[in-house]
Write a protein that binds this DNA or RNA. Sequence first.
DNA 1: ATTTGGATTGCAACCGATTGCATAAATTTT
DNA 2: AAAATTTATGCAATCGGTTGCAATCCAAAT
Lengths: 347, 347
Amino acid sequence: MEKEVTIYDIAKILDISPATVSRALNDHPAINSKTKISIRAKANEMGYRSNTFASNLRRRSTNTLGVIVPRLNSHFMSAVLAGMEEEANASGYNLLISQSLESAKKEIANARTMFNSRVDGLLASVAYDTETFDHFDIFIKKNVPILFFDRIIDHPKCSGVVIDNMLAGFKATSHLIEQGCKRIMHVTGNLKRNVYSGRLQGYREALVSNGLNASDELVLITDLSQDAGKFAAQRIDEMDDRPDGIFISNDICAASCIKSLKEKGYYVPKDIAIVGFNNDPVSQVIEPNLTTVYYPGQQMGEVAVRSMIDHLKGKQLIDVSNTIILESELIIRGSSLKKQRSHLEAY
Amino acid sequence: MEKEVTIYDIAKILDISPATVSRALNDHPAINSKTKISIRAKANEMGYRSNTFASNLRRRSTNTLGVIVPRLNSHFMSAVLAGMEEEANASGYNLLISQSLESAKKEIANARTMFNSRVDGLLASVAYDTETFDHFDIFIKKNVPILFFDRIIDHPKCSGVVIDNMLAGFKATSHLIEQGCKRIMHVTGNLKRNVYSGRLQGYREALVSNGLNASDELVLITDLSQDAGKFAAQRIDEMDDRPDGIFISNDICAASCIKSLKEKGYYVPKDIAIVGFNNDPVSQVIEPNLTTVYYPGQQMGEVAVRSMIDHLKGKQLIDVSNTIILESELIIRGSSLKKQRSHLEAY
DNA sequence: ATTTGGATTGCAACCGATTGCATAAATTTT
DNA sequence: AAAATTTATGCAATCGGTTGCAATCCAAAT
């Protein structure tokens, strides 16, 4: 184990003070540029690396952002994290990542850990069953900025990065209506979460403005898992008055639902047209290919980190508690096309 | 912004020394248990939180593990990370995660960052085109343990967590042979990576031991992307002597290949049987469902972190440079079943 | 009553970088 | 040439825990 080189070692060799070395390495304007050059050269030569802890301790900041996500292993979240990582890395920030596994309890524990690790800022997408904001209060109190993404909590001191879920839900449903669907079902998740309640609202508005049935019996609240897709298909099979279109808030769930429906002998989209959400890889593999809402994960991650870092560096926009809304886009594929070429893609 | 509480504040109030407070909070055996209790109570009451930097600075360790992966956004890697996160979290370790995006250059930069962040240990799965070990030398020199997982590099000082890729490749290929395939193709990735070279070797052995053609023209080296799947199908379509079975080292690629083959009018598995790798969600959505090799991602992450932490805590097993081999399992689905019920799953 | 030894606690020196203030050196102004 | 600035560097305190070693306390042993 080699001994670590410190600024003291450099100072001693060059016969100057550690303070000067520190300033030189941080490009402080008060240091003569020739001095800087020689110090830097020597530092390199000696294999010096700055001790982050000493620096953090003194400066009282960590250059680390905390990230809490519901699950790491979803296509969407992977994309978000990939974006975050790239952006953070480019600005010299590190990410401390943890997952709540959709449990509020674990989320609370994670928040605590992040807090104790003294992250400079927190990026969070809340769990399925998170009810309160309490566990984030400590951050607010200590002035640590919080930015929510995707699944956000409205709070006067926090900003957020989202898509317009209402609009996305509206577009998805309207598309089904255009394709001739008259009785449209919606399979969604916990309505405490903005993403699901927003989409539901968009779905309802589309129905209402077209004079279609928007009753609660057509809304199925699930955990949007693969099993939930099966369950939905089962449920539909048992209905007297079956839907001719379904808007499902998650592609994995939608794909599994299509699969089950086909097994039960229904034709998609002829009998039932389906629209999913997320543009997950499965949407391009299921037959028929799944119409879905594209949702810019990578970009969401990038934007979230960028806006957090800008905020930390004092460059933040005028409004601290602003919400950034990213575009989403309906990608039309076979699973919803009743009118055009639907016979080709039917099965 | 509230003032942070330190052990000095606690010490002053209780009229004891900071050293005692520090020891009490760390459950040091020399401290009287009653003293401990009262110190802990007071610490809680005052909202004390330990300053990690001061602690790290003094102890010269970070309680942080660095993780370098090729990509964050794959199903397999998400599972690995989820496992790592769980295990690390349970032991009070943090994860610093970065992705190489399959580029050796970025991997080198990431390694440098990890090194400068003074991670206690490094967990890595190397990029597609990593050629040398050089960028990891600094860790070895400073005695920072490195553990490779999945895509490993053999090095006397590093341990690894893998599956038996050769065996998996052998099983997958043998299965195709059992189903009556006589001319089996293999689509794989960069052979510098153990995972691909191992599977290739297993594939060859299965062919050879069954007296089948194991020539190079049947091996297609690609990046295993979706496009590569299309490309493979295209290539097959142009062949004079077409294969009747394909073993593809990645489900995403395999699914896309099946899709393309179907579009070109081939029947799977009747004309061409296919086996993939990874048990990605798409494998259960593609029609016919994809036979694949299950690969315990979550468990791999858990084991990697656990074994790293055990090592760091001095509990490591006798052999420092051991390799842990996890079980993989062939999951048989429709895409390879020529004999049994194949007509049902044919299309 | 004195000694012995384990159980507790305190002292004080770190860990390595940062920074307000003072000082010295170089340059300009008068 | 002396005074006033400007420019560069150093001093020393500080961030908050950790830990080797010494000191103290108290009950058991002699």
